[in-house]
Design a protein around this nucleic acid. Structure first.
Lengths: 167, 167
DNA sequence: ACACAATTGTAATAAAGTAACGCGACAGCG
DNA sequence: CGCTGTCGCGTTACTTTATTACAATTGTGT
C-alpha cells in the first residue's frame, strides 16, 4: 500500500476498474480458502465497491432488498460479516459502517482515514503505527492483539476546496 | 502518564483513593470552567470510577435509576456526554461504552488498552502513536483532526494467570 | 438419489441512541 | 424580594443498529 493509494482514494477515478480488480482478487482469494462468493455476498461487495465511502448495514440492506434479495437485517449483516471475516471489507467502529477493502491480501487491520467532508475512506499503511502502539503497550505489560485505529480529518481534495465543500 | 500507570490500571489497588483523587480533580477543573457538577453528573462519574472497566450507557442508567434518578436513556446519555466533553470520561467506540478518565488535565484523546479477559481499560501515552499516524496521513495528503485508537489484548495480570481467567 | 452442512429468508426482539417538550431550580439583576 | 432567562432534569416517544431463533432451501460429496 503506497502513499499514492491514500491520495487516490479521495480523488475521482475509474471505479469500474478498481472495483473490478478488487472483485477479481476477492473471488480468487475466496476460492483458495474454499469459501463461496454467493450472489448476495458478491452483490454486497459490489455495492461497497461502488464508492470509497463507508455504508451502514441498513443502507446496504436497502440496496439488496431493492434487487430482490431478502429485506431483513440478518441478510445484510451476514454478508457483511462474511466479507469482513475474509478480509474483503472492513468495519468502521466509529461510523457503525462498512467499507470495501481495496487491498485484500495485505495482512491487515489497517489504519483508516475518514474524510469528514466527503465521507470517503482510505486505508493507510499500518506498520509504523502498530509498532509504536505495540511498544507503548509493551512498556505497560500489555499485549496488543487487535487494534482499531480510525482517524477523522480532512482529505487533500477537500482541504484544497476550502475545508468543507464536498468533493 | 507513565508506564506504571498502565500496569496499575490492571492490578488490584485502592479505588477509594484513586477514584477520590480523580473526583476532586474533576470538581476543581469544572469549577474553573464554570461548569456544574450536579448530583446526577457526580454520581455518574463515581459509578464509572468504581471500576477501571468500561460501562454501557444502559448499565450506568440502571445504577442511576436504582438510586432515584431518572430512568430514561437521556438521563445517562446526557451525563455521560457532559463528562466526555469536559474530559472526565471517554467513549470507547469499540465497546459502545464509557470509562472514567483517570488523567484529567492531560490534553488527550488517548490510546486505550482494553483487556479482553478482565475488561479493564487503561489509557496509554498517545504521543508516539499520534506522531506516527500524523506522518503516515500527511504522506497521503490527509490531515488528521481526531483519532480513535483502541487496542484489544491481554493485560499483564491476565496474561500471567494463563490467558483467560478473569483477574 | 441421499445425507449433511452451509446459506438464505423470515419474524420477532434486543440494544443503543436521539428528538421534542415541559417543569423546576438557579443565577443575575432591578 | 421578585422577575426573567438559562440550564438541567425528567418523561414520552421514536429511530437506528444489531441479534436470536427457526424454517426453508441450496449445494457438496458420496
Amino acid at each position: 500500500m503506497t502513499d499514492d493509494a491514500i491520495a487516490a482514494a479521495f480523488v475521482p477515478h475509474d471505479h469500474q476498474e478498481c472495483a473490478h480488480r478488487a472483485l477479481d482478487e476477492a473471488a480468487a482469494r475466496l476460492k483458495d480458502q474454499g469459501a463461496r462468493l454467493t450472489p448476495v455476498r458478491r452483490r454486497t461487495l459490489e455495492i461497497l465497491l461502488e464508492s470509497h465511502r463507508a455504508m451502514g448495514a441498513y443502507d446496504v440492506l436497502d440496496r439488496l432488498a431493492a434487487e430482490g434479495f431478502g429485506r431483513q437485517p440478518p441478510v445484510a449483516y451476514r454478508a457483511l460479516e462474511f466479507l469482513v471475516q475474509h478480509g474483503l471489507a472492513h468495519r468502521l467502529q466509529r461510523l457503525n459502517a462498512f467499507a470495501a477493502c481495496l487491498h485484500p491480501g495485505d495482512d491487515h487491520h489497517p489504519v483508516f482515514l475518514i474524510c469528514r467532508s466527503c465521507d470517503r475512506v482510505a486505508e493507510a499503511p499500518v506498520t509504523p503505527i502498530r509498532d509504536a502502539l505495540a511498544q507503548v503497550a509493551k512498556a505497560g505489560g500489555f499485549r496488543v492483539e487487535r487494534a482499531t485505529i480510525e482517524a477523522l480529518g480532512l482529505c487533500a481534495t477537500c482541504a484544497a476546496t476550502d475545508a468543507g465543500a464536498p468533493c
